[in-house]
């Protein structure tokens, strides 16, 4: 009575074990998983034609952010346009909800597809404007 269910289970195990097409483990980090198109990874700044950020420092992302991780210091240029003099995102507290991307009127801040972001220090998880424009770092 005890043996029969055990054998039944073993049958399934062996079937999976021996069938080479049922292997689903990815050999990370040699191989990487393809993420969904809706994946929300590390943030980056979209660039304008000059290679500068498209951000105009309106402050909406800061206002909408539920975990309060964005700091912006806005500055006005003599011509009247604005740019973020300082832009900080604290990734250690970010919940990657994507509200900032959604609210941005200039499509400047985006959440990329990068999910690998490792550092030795907490302070390195605070991205500034230059980091967000450095695509080698944020790997959108």
């Amino acid at each position: 009575m005890i043996v029969l269910p055990l054998l039944k289970g073993l049958k399934l195990t062996l079937k999976r074990f021996l069938n080479p097409f049922s292997i689903i483990t990815i050999q990370y980090p040699e191989k990487k998983r393809e993420v969904s198109p809706r994946w929300r990874g590390i943030h980056y700044f979209a660039k304008d034609e000059k290679g500068e950020t498209k951000c105009v420092a309106c402050g909406l992302c800061q206002a909408v952010c539920p975990s309060n991780v964005i700091t912006i210091e806005a500055a006005e240029e003599p011509g009247g346009t604005r740019y973020p003099k300082r832009f900080l995102i604290n990734l250690t507290r970010c919940i990657f909800c994507g509200f900032c991307e959604e609210v941005c009127p200039k499509d400047a801040i985006k959440l990329g597809r990068n999910y690998e972001f490792v550092n030795y220090k907490r302070s390195d998880f605070i991205l500034n404007k230059e980091d967000l424009l450095n695509y080698d770092l944020v790997k959108p």
């Binding site: 402050g59 800061q62 210091e73 806005a74 500055a75 006005e76």
Partner: peptide, 8 residues
């Protein structure tokens, strides 16, 4: 030249 919103 530095600006801040009302909520900031």
């Amino acid at each position: 030249p530095i600006k801040a919103r009302k909520w900031q």
